[in-house]
Design a protein around this nucleic acid. Structure first.
Length: 557
RNA sequence: GCGCCUGUAGCUCAAUUGGAUAGAGCAUAUGGCUUCGGACCAUAGGGCUGGGGGUUCAAGUCCCUCCAGGCGCGCCA
């Protein structure tokens, strides 16, 4: 594939430079990039521009000198018949043009590797954990969580595809004040149902769904009157509420196509014993001190703005402590890399949790925190204000019902996750395919139609020789197909599936362009077979990409 | 007040991480199916990349500084 060729070429060029300039590595390293402009070849190298100063010559002269060295170095290597020519262009770029053979090899490889094309063993089976969504079980999931779910799931797919052992985890905050409030809110509604007067606690949950939970509780526990409702312990309501809402959350995520490998419960991990053990550990290492009657964690030792309280003067712990315990637990389970995907409201929390990881004796970079920006929902052109407590928000369920799973998931992935996302419900609800997911899936379905037709007339894709593919649109398509492995590496570097989305859109564009100008099944049998191979390679790449994003690969639409 | 993010075509966003002439979609205007799926394709207009300075062969991208918007700041979770 192209990625292999690129590395081979890079290695060869570096070797040739080392031989030509025996003095140590005073030269910048060879970088090959894929130029945006076709007339600049398949690979471009900027090393002459970067080293012109060292030679005290013009970049163009240096480029010419390098070009000759490169040219010679390719003699009698496998690269010789794959690099057509090397050109020097304007400011001092050295451009490499591939032979058709090199491009045809890409096709052969894709057809052979099929479902595994684009994947690799890059990750070396390294254990990676991706924790995402992790919404408190105090209400249904909102669109904010939906976006995190779409991003996290796709990212996990990609990491596994390139050889990591990535696990999806949902952290269930089933302890703490918010959960108490949930229990009290449900109890309040239960009392109201039996005609009693009860005031919601301050900051209690006001959503309609609380009433549903109260009803379910009454039914389950066979409560027959007001007194029985009043007599029930808040803890009972709390546990019931958490279970109920977790069921709703799991169900919604399931329907959204997101399946977690592990649901980690705070109450099972951040036990009193475990918290005490972590405090003891931190104390021994000298990262704790007392001030104003509280216990402080010296997060400033690791770059945080200020130290953080872990135990308040009233003896209760802050939220940071169970979080540290939880992260220790992650490491204890053998994860070498931990990725947390959080909402923007947790942004300020990153320095202290990374500090905690370091205090636990881990590498700072073994913990990566990525923020997925909020999606702003527009209804009738107006942004919808959201508040979980008031129960005013668009839920994941509503999005699934209104715009469908594929459209919704794609929409959430359509921007870099660090960027804000405007989600116009009215627009998304329209059946008109303004949503580009159809554009990509349509390309896939079209190819399936071609295959069906080909089968009818017993036409079989060419396997090895593609020398009849010479049209501009054909070669452009092949070049793009060869780029998938590189794109997945970008996704890995950025820990963001976005690059793949944009790649698939470009690939679909090139396919539609090709389709519009050339017939696959025509009178020339040999050509038809080769084009059939080309569109099938395209189908493979589209399908692999769509699958990684968690989208369907429809054969008809 | 401090910190982070964002600012690119009328609108929503790209730009292979510092590369060559800043690109798509939507919208607007015009054109293309006796054919493998028209949910497609083609052509056109539209830009001082918020302003200013700096770094270098090269800046939308990096640094400084203003301007505008969003978010976060707790012995809350």
């Amino acid at each position: 594939m192209l990625a292999n060729l690129k590395t081979q070429l890079k290695t060869e060029l570096e070797k040739s430079l080392k031989e030509s300039f025996s003095t140590e590595d005073f030269l910048p390293s060879v970088e090959l990039e894929i130029p945006a402009e076709k007339s600049h070849g398949e690979f471009a190298c900027n090393i002459a521009l970067k080293s012109a100063r060292i030679f005290k010559k013009s970049p163009l002269d240096v480029a010419e000198q390098f070009r000759e060295i490169f040219q010679k170095s390719l003699h009698n290597t496998p690269l010789q018949e794959r690099i057509a020519r090397i050109e020097v262009k304007k400011p001092g770029f050295i451009n490499f043009f591939l032979t058709p053979l090199a491009l045809y090899e890409v096709l052969g490889q894709i057809l052979q590797e099929d479902k595994t094309y684009g994947g690799s063993d890059f990750g070396g089976r390294k254990k990676v954990q991706i924790e995402f969504v992790s919404a408190n079980p105090t209400g249904p999931l909102s669109v904010a969580h939906a976006r995190q779910a779409a991003v996290g799931d796709a990212l996990a797919n990609i990491l596994n595809f390139i050889g990591f052992d990535a696990r999806r985890e949902y952290y269930v905050n089933d302890g703490g004040n918010q959960i108490n409030l949930l229990g009290e809110s449900i109890k309040c509604r239960a009392i109201e149902i039996w005609g009693g007067a009860a005031r919601l606690p301050e900051n209690g949950y006001q959503g309609e769904y609380i009433k549903d939970i109260a009803k379910a509780f009454i039914e389950k526990n066979n409560i027959k009157n007001l007194d029985e409702a009043k007599a029930k312990d808040t803890a009972g309501f709390r546990h019931f509420g958490v279970d109920y809402l977790l069921g709703v959350i799991k169900n919604d995520l399931d329907d959204f196509g997101v399946h977690f490998d592990c649901w980690a419960h705070e109450t099972g991990i951040a036990t009193q014993e475990n918290m005490a053990a972590v405090l003891e550990d931190l104390r021994e290492k000298g990262f704790l001190y007392e001030k104003d009657g509280a216990l402080w964690f010296k997060s400033t030792d690791f770059g945080d703005d200020k130290d953080r309280v872990v135990k308040k003067s009233d003896g209760t712990h802050t939220y940071l402590l169970p979080d540290i315990v939880y992260h220790k637990n992650k490491y204890d389970r053998g994860f070498e890399k931990i990725i947390n995907i959080w909402g923007p409201d947790h942004h300020g929390y990153i320095p202290r949790i990374k500090a905690a990881a370091q205090a636990l004796g881990k590498e700072r970079d073994s913990l990566e925190v990525r923020i997925v920006q909020l999606a702003t929902i527009y209804r009738d052109g107006q942004p919808v204000s959201m508040s979980t407590r008031r129960g005013e928000f668009i839920s994941l369920r509503e999005v699934i019902d209104e715009v469908g799973v594929d459209a919704a998931r794609f929409f959430f992935l359509m921007r870099h996750m660090s960027g804000h996302l405007d989600f116009d419900l009215e627009l998304a609800k329209k059946e008109t395919p303004e949503n580009p997911v159809y554009y990509i899936q349509y390309a896939h379905a079209r190819i399936h139609s071609i295959n069906k037709k080909a089968q009818e007339i017993k036409l079989v894709p060419q396997a090895g020789n593609f020398s009849l593919l010479k049209e501009e649109e054909e070669l452009d398509l092949i070049r793009k197909l060869g780029g998938l492995p590189d794109i997945l590496m970008i996704c890995y570097d950025e820990l963001d599936p976005y690059a793949l989305v944009s790649y698939l859109l470009e690939l679909a564009t090139l396919f539609h362009k090709f389709y519009d100008r050339h017939r696959v099944i025509g009178e020339d049998m040999a050509l038809s077979c080769e084009r059939l191979a080309l569109v099938n390679a395209t189908r493979i790449v589209l399908a692999n990409g769509l699958r990684l994003l968690g989208l369907n690969t429809p054969e008809r639409m």
